[in-house]
């Protein structure tokens, strides 16, 4: 078993290196200017695109670690984005500024919190089917997210709102490479990077982290150790809802306007978040890195254009989705926590 786990990781890493090598070789063979594609600007844009996915992934990871598969994160993201957009518009009376952006993110977190509590009660207390209820939340988001937009703007899309300004940290911003990537960009990127590290530390080095892991792996062991499994799971599910809502708000804050047509502006990023934490092997930092890969795929289009490779937008936009399928096919059998999806009832 241990060999399996270690072997699994080795295969994972080897495959990742393999893909990179193949990509570089292919690029060389096709005479693609890698240096022009992977620019600092590209990394910066990829990080911004990755931020909402990473936030969602970290939350979803906590829920699943605790034994509850929260596949409603896509729905939470839509609500997060829609709430942030409408709040920003309403509190500013139609001309939002930077302060309104932050207030909108805060409001979005609070609304997500309320939804997450209800959702957690349905999942845990009323033993809802986790898959069906999670899907339902997506559909509810797809309906009521644009609904909110129509109520406010009479259109599924918002007019141009305010996006978040870059934060330039003096001195640090001048550090080569890292400076522009982390210290002269959206402050939410730095926030997410810090959060990923904190989430990792919390999960591995605090008692609550221990409890979350035990709740998902062997709830009986946790129960016999005197900890209430249900409470741990409530906390984790609510956290995942809030994080996904925040992810949606951040997506909006980076985009600067709300899109409610089609699958809305979230457009599968919640699902990608789930795959990101599977790909990251349930490690918050790994999940954030995986999110960056998907963010990079998302931003590839601009890079290809700048170096003069004409691939239709429509198709390049599909790269992240194809990437997800590839990831799931190669790493499909990730070891999920043993007790995911099982309701736990204490002996008492």
């Amino acid at each position: 078993m241990s060999d399996d786990a270690a072997g699994d990781n080795r295969v994972r890493n080897a495959a990742l290196v393999g893909i990179l090598v193949v990509a570089v070789l292919a690029a060389t063979a096709l005479d693609l200017p890698i240096v022009d594609i992977v620019t600092i600007g590209f990394v910066e844009r990829s990080l911004q695109a990755a931020t909402p996915i990473a936030l969602t992934a970290i939350g979803g990871l906590y829920a699943e670690k605790s034994g509850v598969f929260n596949i409603g994160v896509e729905g939470f993201m839509i609500f997060g984005a829609a709430t942030a957009a409408t709040t920003m518009w309403i509190i500013s009376g139609g001309s939002p500024g930077q302060g309104d952006v932050w207030l909108a993110i805060l409001a979005s977190v609070l609304v997500s919190l309320a939804f997450a509590v209800v959702f957690a009660v349905l999942l845990i207390r009323y033993e809802a089917d986790q898959i069906v209820a999670g899907l339902a939340l997506w559909f509810i988001g797809l309906g009521f997210g644009p609904f909110m937009a129509v109520l406010v703007w009479d259109s599924r899309n918002s007019p141009s709102l305010e996006g978040i300004n870059d934060l330039t940290v003096p001195v640090l911003a001048d550090v080569p490479v890292l400076g522009p990537i982390f210290f002269d960009t959206s402050p939410l990127v730095l926030f997410t990077a810090v959060l990923a590290v904190v989430a990792w530390k919390f999960l591995n080095d605090t008692r609550y982290g221990y409890w979350i892991q035990a709740a998902g792996e062997n709830p009986e062991a946790l129960d016999t150790a005197g900890i209430d499994v249900t409470r741990v799971r409530y906390a984790a599910v609510i956290f995942s809802g809030v994080m996904a809502g925040l992810g949606g708000a951040v997506l909006l804050a980076h985009a600067g306007s709300f899109t409610g047509t089609g699958e809305t502006m979230v457009s599968g990023r919640g699902w990608i978040g789930i795959v990101a934490y599977l790909f990251g092997n349930y490690n918050p930092i790994g999940a954030a890195v995986a999110a960056l890969v998907f963010g990079g795929l998302d931003m590839l289009q601009i890079q290809l254009q700048t170096v003069g490779i004409e691939v239709p937008n429509r198709l390049v936009n599909l790269f992240p989705y194809a990437g997800v399928i590839l990831v799931l096919t190669v790493w499909g059998s990730t070891r999920t926590p043993s007790a995911v999806g099982e309701t736990y009832e204490s002996e008492e």
Partner: peptide, 25 residues
């Protein structure tokens, strides 16, 4: 065994009775 296989021996032994300092175990 009432052990969490993915956690370390130390983590298993102290589970639910963790000594903490500054929030960390």
């Amino acid at each position: 065994f009432q052990l969490v296989e993915t956690m370390t021996v130390l983590q298993n032994i102290v589970l639910g009775r963790e000594p903490t300092e500054m929030g960390l175990v």
